[in-house]
């Protein structure tokens, strides 16, 4: 029964909106800030694309489409990881 209660709690936590969960991880804004700081001074294609995708993620978040905002933020972070710095 105790296991069942734990499962239920986890289930409810998972179903809650991301912004209301204490274990949801950083917000789109926080991730965007980290990415922009990390890419400061980078001028290659991947860095530019990462910044552009971050802007899309922020716009989607502003329209309350958190799921899509996260997907674009994931794409932005993948591009950022390919950036080799200044050119």
């Amino acid at each position: 029964m105790r296991i069942a209660a734990t499962m239920l709690a986890l289930l409810l936590l998972g179903a809650a909106p991301a912004w209301s969960s204490p274990i949801a991880g950083p917000s789109i804004e926080e991730r965007a800030d980290i990415l922009r700081t990390q890419l400061k001074g980078h001028a290659d294609y991947h860095a530019h694309l990462a910044r552009e995708l971050t802007t899309v993620a922020e716009a989607e978040k502003a329209q309350h489409d958190i799921r899509i905002a996260k997907i674009f933020m994931d794409m932005a972070e993948r591009e950022a990881s390919k950036s080799e710095g200044e050119q």
Binding site: A43, Y45, A47, H48, L49, R51
Partner: peptide
């Protein structure tokens, strides 16, 4: 790179 990134 900046313009191509905007396009993509």
């Amino acid at each position: 790179p900046a313009l191509q990134a905007k396009a993509v």
